[in-house]
Design a protein around this nucleic acid. Structure first.
Lengths: 195, 195
DNA sequence: GTCTATATAATGATAGAC
DNA sequence: GTCTATCATTATATAGAC
């Protein structure tokens, strides 16, 4: 439903971001035009520039927002205690947080090459903060003699790749319930660290 | 170096594919124009249409070629014998084959959404053939009482995601040698199947 | 087989009216 | 804040000369 002229700043902003998120995940950043995003929102293309400086800023905002929300949620969900409990919590957090955000996850991995170098560096910095969270858990587990693995850094990257890969095949109507899959991944992550 | 007019069919064809591969991996399919590919090859844009029906066919050929070469190489490298040996061989094959083909791997995962539905279905079919190779190894190992895992299908997908993720961070000049990394992944895959 | 030239359509972004 | 209108550029693909 296209809107007529008028002032709608308080709702149009989020709608622009939602439309861009959905369309970019579906077709790719370069394949989605500003006109197409505007059409989805129900405004004319020129109106989008009240909410973003240009197309690049729109992509960067989506990706930075995704990473910052991830880090904030992670900080809230982090548990203290023994490394095994922290590892299990990390696995469950990663799955629970990423799974309902398929579009954001997809964009954050696929559209890195369409960022300017400065914007790319910032996203990579945020991603590294998240990876370091897991790496510290593994290192603490190794130091405590609880985990048995050959290389902390490589195991960190392997676990994250394994967990994130779930987004590419999981379907809510699939063979296994989310709880069951989560349990499977908790078990596999434990195996990877030798417990 | 731009070429002058003349007949060069025997060399231009592969050069078009090489240029498209490199540029699409770098910038994404939608972001790369036929003009840019032609410039890289050293011909005018119109000349590309002697080698591809249109831009879509160019992408599909790259992806189909990648998958068919993968399956052919896999068939040649497959070993028989006990499941543990077959699993180790699969791990080493996957790493050795994918690592020097970063551009192809990247495109094959990133550009699926830019294929027409028919072309997408064909690529997915080929990918499933490869996944089934690993799944059969896991199932045989479970049946023989050698592997101990909770779900063959999920473990298959987890292993492939873990192995393929290596392409996103491996650098030849990095901290670890390829042999060392390969050994680490063989160990992690073994752990994932409970041996 | 490649070139030049072109048809036709779409793009990102801006200016000024309301 | 949104609209209409538009600029300047770029896109895919084709036609016909050589």
């Amino acid at each position: 439903m296209a809107r007529k002229t008028g002032s709608h700043s308080e709702i149009t902003g989020p709608r622009v971001r939602d439309a861009a998120l959905k369309l970019i995940a579906q077709h790719g950043f370069a394949a989605v035009s500003m006109r197409r995003i505007a059409e989805e929102v129900g405004v004319q293309a020129g109106a989008l520039y009240n909410y973003t400086r240009d197309k690049q800023a729109l992509l960067f905002d989506l990706m930075r927002n995704h990473m910052e929300e991830l880090l904030a949620a992670r900080q809230e969900a982090a548990v203290s205690g023994d490394p095994v409990a922290r590892l299990d919590a990390f696995t469950r957090f990663h799955i629970h947080w990423h799974l309902p955000r398929g579009d954001q996850v997809f964009i954050s991995y696929m559209e890195l090459r369409n960022l300017t170098p400065e914007n790319f560096a910032e996203i990579e910095r945020l991603r590294k903060v998240y990876e370091d969270e897991l790496e510290h858990i593994l290192q603490d587990g190794v130091d405590a003699g609880l985990f048995h693995l050959d290389d902390t850094k490589v195991t960190t990257l392997a676990i994250i790749a394994m967990l994130t890969g779930m987004s590419t095949w999981y379907r809510a109507e699939g063979r296994l319930s989310l709880d069951r899959i989560e349990g499977l991944y908790v078990g596999m992550v434990r195996r990877l660290v030798g417990i």
